[in-house]
Amino acid sequence: MEPPHTLEAYVALVVETIEETEDFLACIDDADPEENWERYRLPMERILAGLRQLLAGLEGGAYRPPAADSPPFFDDIDALAADVPIRSMLREVARIYREGF
């Protein structure tokens, strides 16, 4: 994945990440209980809420990277294990949030 270099590309990444997060939560619903994916439900729900908040701020013009703070969902991303398939995408959204393009 090539990192976004414009605000429009970053918004597109955030939208895609929201969709992937929703898909991941749907997969948790369908997963075998023995695989223990349920442990990610609460952090992923907080991440999804934070992504939606970020998107609203980006679309409303209230926010443009870089920011002085970490995104509201940053701690939840760091708590995810490497086996979460969208972890790298989430980390990229958070990196651009902090560092800019």
Rank of each mutant, 00 (worst) to 15 (best):
E20I: 00
A56C: 09
G60C: 02
L54V: 09
L51G: 03
P33N: 08
P85I: 07
G50Q: 05
P3T: 08
E34Q: 10
V15Q: 15
I28R: 00
L51Y: 01
D23L: 12
R46A: 00
F74S: 06
P65S: 11
V84C: 12
D83V: 08
T6W: 11
V14P: 10
M89T: 15
S70M: 13
E92P: 02
A81W: 08
E20V: 03
R95C: 00
I47M: 03
V15G: 06
I47V: 06
G61V: 14
T6E: 09
D78K: 07
L58E: 11
L90D: 03
P4Q: 11
F73I: 11
A79G: 05
S70C: 07
A56I: 06
A68L: 15
L48H: 00
P33L: 12
E35I: 03
H5D: 09
L48N: 05
D23C: 02
E35V: 10
D23V: 05
P66Q: 10
E8A: 15
M1A: 15
R41I: 04
R52A: 01
D75V: 11
R91F: 06
N36F: 06
E22P: 05
D23E: 15
V15Y: 09
E92L: 15
D23M: 06
D23A: 13
I18R: 14
L80M: 12
A62D: 14
I28T: 03
L51C: 08
M44R: 02
D76F: 10
D69W: 07
E8C: 04
E22C: 03
F74D: 09
E22F: 02
V14C: 10
D78T: 04
T21E: 09
G60R: 01
R87W: 07
F73H: 12
Y63P: 04
A81I: 03
Y10M: 12
T6C: 12
D75E: 14
A82Y: 04
S88H: 08
L42I: 04
P72A: 15
D75Y: 14
W37H: 01
D30W: 10
R64K: 11
F101W: 15
D83W: 03
M89V: 13
R41F: 02
M1E: 14
A94E: 07
R46H: 12
P66K: 06
A12Y: 04
S88R: 15
D23W: 04
H5P: 03
L42D: 11
P71I: 05
V84S: 06
L80Q: 08
H5T: 12
N36R: 07
V15C: 13
T21G: 13
E35P: 02
I47H: 01
T21K: 12
T17F: 07
I86A: 00
I47A: 02
E99Y: 07
L51S: 01
E8L: 14
A9P: 07
A81P: 00
P66G: 13
R41D: 01
D23Q: 14
P72W: 06
V11N: 05
A49R: 00
G60T: 02
D30R: 13
A9V: 10
I28N: 01
M44L: 15
A26S: 14
L51R: 02
A94W: 02
Y40S: 05
Y63R: 14
E45V: 01
R52P: 01
A79P: 00
C27R: 15
E38M: 08
F73M: 08
R87Q: 12
